[in-house]
């Protein structure tokens, strides 16, 4: 079960600001899902390998040959803020 403190930590890890109201609202729902997930514990998986990729593929490459890039204009076309060809982000600290 997760409490308010856990939720704050997860919210920070996920970078989603949560209001007090959100925390109230989400906690029981998240816990009901986690409770449902406890079903997983019942499965016997001793010695079972995890499946990361459903098809047994390996060694897929591209050759080291340049392809067209976007123009600077295209690259910046969706950026809410930019300056002198750079994308503008908030201050770091």
């Amino acid at each position: 079960m997760i409490g308010k403190k856990d939720l704050e930590h997860i919210g920070w890890l996920a970078r989603i600001e949560l209001s007090d109201e959100d925390k109230e609202k989400y906690t029981p729902k998240l816990n009901s899902v986690l409770d449902y997930f406890s079903e997983l514990d019942k499965a016997e998986t001793e010695g079972v390998e995890p499946t990361y990729h459903v098809l047994p593929m390996s060694n897929v490459f591209r050759e080291d040959v340049p392809t067209a890039s976007l123009s600077q204009e295209e690259a910046l076309s969706n950026a809410p803020k930019n300056q002198h060809g750079f994308i503008k982000a908030p201050r770091m600290m």
Partner: peptide, 24 residues
């Protein structure tokens, strides 16, 4: 290398304007 590790953008960007050697 001629291109980046996961896309075909050229690595020869050192004298070019910002955000001119990028792709999706």
């Amino acid at each position: 290398l001629k291109t980046k590790v996961f896309c075909g953008c050229s690595t020869d960007y050192h004298n070019d304007p910002p955000n001119s050697h990028v792709c999706p």
